[in-house]
Each structure stands twice: as structure tokens, then as C-alpha cells.
Lab assay of single mutants.
Amino acid sequence: MAMNGTITTWFKDKGFGFIKDENGDNRYFHVIKVANPDLIKKDAAVTFEPTTNNKGLSAYAVKVVPL
């Protein structure tokens, strides 16, 4: 089920960042999981599918909501 969130941290040079989800949890995401990576920036609103990996909470099918 899709969730909403906000990008809180973005490491462009490393290709990953973190999203604060609607429950207040931080989720890892990688640029290859983003549909529109050219719009990635700190504080951008996103929708995504929540999941977990071996390191904890993460996100896939991430879409940055255009302003």
C-alpha cells in the first residue's frame, strides 16, 4: 500500500537518501528506485511503497510529487 513522505536527506554523489514517512519513521531509498530522479531534493514530497531490507525500513517505487 502506497505511503506519503518527505525526503529528509539526499546524498546525490552516493545515490541514496532517506524519507520520513507518514508515521514519522525514516526509510532508506536508492536513486534506481525513483521514477523521476531529476526531481529529487531535500524536503520534496514523495509517494512510495514501503518495504524492509536487511538494514531496516526502506522504500521502492518512489515518485517525487512535482510542485
Rank of each mutant, 00 (worst) to 15 (best):
T51H: 14
H30V: 08
N4T: 13
I19L: 08
N26S: 13
N23Q: 08
G56N: 06
N26F: 15
I32F: 14
T47Y: 07
K33N: 15
K20F: 10
R27S: 01
V65R: 08
D43E: 08
A59N: 02
T51K: 11
E49A: 13
W10Q: 01
L67S: 13
I7A: 00
K63I: 12
N4E: 07
T52C: 13
D13R: 11
A44H: 04
L57F: 06
V62L: 05
L67C: 13
A35C: 15
L39I: 07
E22A: 08
N36K: 05
L39F: 11
T9R: 14
P50F: 04
E22S: 10
Y28D: 00
N26K: 13
K20E: 07
A61C: 13
N4V: 11
D25Q: 11
V31I: 13
P66N: 11
F29Q: 00
M1E: 10
L67P: 14
K42T: 09
I32H: 15
V64R: 01
K12Y: 08
D25F: 09
N54R: 14
A59D: 02
M3H: 06
D43P: 03
N26E: 11
E22H: 06
A61F: 09
A2S: 13
A44C: 09
S58M: 10
K42M: 09
M3E: 02
G15Y: 05
K42P: 08
M3W: 06
T51L: 11
K55Y: 15
G56A: 06
F16P: 00
K55M: 12
I7T: 00
E49F: 15
N54S: 14
K33R: 15
T51F: 14
A35V: 15
N53R: 10
N54A: 14
N4F: 12
T47P: 01
N36F: 06
N36I: 04
T8C: 10
K55F: 14
K63P: 00
A45S: 11
L67H: 13
D43V: 03
F29A: 00
M1R: 13
V34N: 04
D43F: 14
V46A: 02
P37M: 05
S58T: 11
G56D: 04
K12G: 09
K41N: 07
K55V: 09
K12R: 09
A2C: 13
G15Q: 08
E49S: 14
T52Q: 13
W10K: 00
H30C: 10
T47K: 08
T8V: 14
P37L: 05
T51Y: 14
A45H: 14
I19N: 00
P66Y: 10
K33T: 15
W10D: 00
N36G: 03
G56S: 06
V46E: 01
T8D: 06
L39H: 10
N36Q: 06
T8I: 14
K14D: 06
P37R: 08
P50G: 05
I19Q: 00
E22I: 07
A45R: 14
P50I: 06
T6C: 11
K42H: 08
T51E: 12
L67T: 13
F18Q: 03
V46K: 01
N54Q: 13
D13Y: 11
Y28N: 04
K33H: 15
G5M: 01
G5D: 00
V34H: 03
V46P: 00
K63R: 12
A59S: 06
T52H: 12
Y28R: 03
A59M: 04
A35P: 04
D13H: 12
G24V: 02
V46I: 05
A44M: 09
I19E: 00
D25A: 09
G5Y: 02
K12L: 07
M3P: 03
D21K: 01
D21T: 03
I40G: 00
V64F: 04
G24A: 04
K41P: 01
N26H: 12
G56C: 09
D38P: 07
S58I: 08
P50K: 04
D21W: 02
N54Y: 11
K14P: 05
I7V: 09
P37I: 06
A44N: 04
Y60D: 15
G17P: 00
F16Q: 02
D25Y: 08
V46G: 01
F48A: 00
D25M: 10
K55N: 10
R27N: 02
T51R: 13
Y28S: 05
N53E: 07
K33W: 15
F48C: 02
D38S: 11
A35N: 09
K12D: 06
N23I: 06
T8R: 10
K42N: 06
T47W: 07
F18T: 06
K12H: 08
G24F: 04
A45E: 08
L57N: 05
N54I: 12
L57Q: 05
A35G: 08
F18M: 05
M3G: 04
R27E: 00
T6I: 14
D21A: 04
P50Y: 04
F11P: 01
A45T: 11
K55I: 10
R27M: 02
I40E: 00
L67V: 13
P37V: 06
F29D: 00
D13V: 10
N26W: 12
P50S: 04
E22Q: 11
Y28T: 03
E49V: 15
N23E: 06
A61D: 14
A59G: 03
K12M: 08
A45G: 07
D38C: 13
V62R: 00
S58Y: 08
D21P: 01
T8M: 10
L39M: 13
G56I: 09
I40A: 04
G17Y: 02
N36T: 07
G17D: 00
T8F: 07
T52W: 12
G5I: 02
G24P: 01
N54D: 12
K12P: 14
N53P: 04
T52D: 07
E22D: 07
D43C: 15
F16G: 01
P37F: 04
I19H: 00
F29H: 00
K12V: 09
P66G: 12
G24W: 03
D25W: 06
V62Q: 01
I32G: 15
A35H: 12
G17M: 02
I32S: 15
P50L: 04
A2R: 15
E22M: 08
T47V: 12
G24Q: 05
K20W: 07
L39G: 06
K33C: 15
T6Q: 08
G56P: 04
N53W: 09
D13S: 12
V46T: 02
V62E: 00
N53K: 07
V64T: 03
E22K: 06
K12F: 07
K55H: 14
T52N: 10
F16C: 05
F48D: 01
L39A: 10
A2F: 12
I32M: 15
E22P: 04
F11C: 09
W10R: 00
I7F: 01
F16K: 02
N54H: 13
N23P: 01
K42F: 06
Y28Q: 03
Y60K: 15
S58D: 04
H30Y: 08
N4M: 13
A59V: 08
E49M: 15
D25L: 08
G24I: 01
T9L: 14
G56T: 07
G15I: 02
A59Y: 03
K63H: 12
N26C: 14
K42S: 06
K55W: 15
V64L: 05
F11E: 04
F18S: 04
F18A: 02
R27D: 00
D21Y: 02
V34D: 04
Y28K: 03
G15N: 07
V65F: 10
V46N: 01
E22W: 07
A35Q: 14
M3L: 13
T51V: 14
L67Y: 13
K41A: 12
V62W: 02
K20Y: 09
G17L: 02
F16W: 12
K20R: 14
A61E: 09
L57T: 03
F48W: 01
I19Y: 01
M1H: 13
I19G: 00
D13T: 11
I19W: 02
T9K: 14
D38R: 11
K41M: 10
N23T: 05
F11D: 06
V62M: 03
T52I: 10
T9H: 15
N53C: 10
V31R: 14
I40L: 13
V62Y: 02
V34T: 06
P66M: 11
N54L: 12
G5Q: 01
A59T: 07
F48G: 00
Y28L: 05
K41Q: 11
A61R: 11
T9P: 01
G5T: 01
N23K: 10
G24E: 04
L57Y: 06
K42R: 12
I19S: 00
N36V: 04
K12Q: 09
A44Y: 04
N54K: 14
S58N: 05
F16V: 04
A35S: 12
Y60A: 14
A61Y: 09
N54P: 12
D21E: 01
L39T: 06
K14Y: 09
N54V: 12
F16D: 02
G5L: 03
V64W: 02
I32Q: 15
N23A: 08
V64I: 11
M3Y: 06
K63Q: 11
A2W: 12
L67M: 13
T8W: 08
P50C: 05
R27C: 03
K33S: 15
V46Y: 02
K33Q: 15
E22G: 06
A44S: 07
K55A: 08
D13W: 10
T9W: 13
V31D: 05
N26R: 14
A45I: 11
F29W: 02
N4I: 09
E49Q: 15
A59P: 01
K55S: 08
Y60I: 15
Y60P: 01
G5P: 00
N23M: 10
N36P: 02
V46D: 01
N36A: 04
